[in-house]
Amino acid sequence: MAAHARSRSRHWQWLLLIPTAAPLLTPFTNRIEPTLLGVPFFFWYQFACALLATVVITVVYLATRGDRP
């Protein structure tokens, strides 16, 4: 029972693939427009990825926090 609950909460870790893959999509983000505060998309997209990484990792941390092996 406890083991089952633990393995289910482990599934949250798959979410980590999103912030791992997002910064690597540069072939699709290689463009100037739209700019943000004058910064081309290619560059501000990575700022967004950093924010995304913090959000996703925080979510996974909170979801798996209670785990004790």
Partner: peptide, 20 residues
């Protein structure tokens, strides 16, 4: 220019990997 920007996605990718 853009090629030098590689350090930024590289740094971001390490964070979820660090977590695991």
């Amino acid at each position: 220019g853009a090629i030098g920007w590689f350090a930024v996605p590289f740094a971001i990718v390490t964070t979820p990997l660090t977590f695991y």
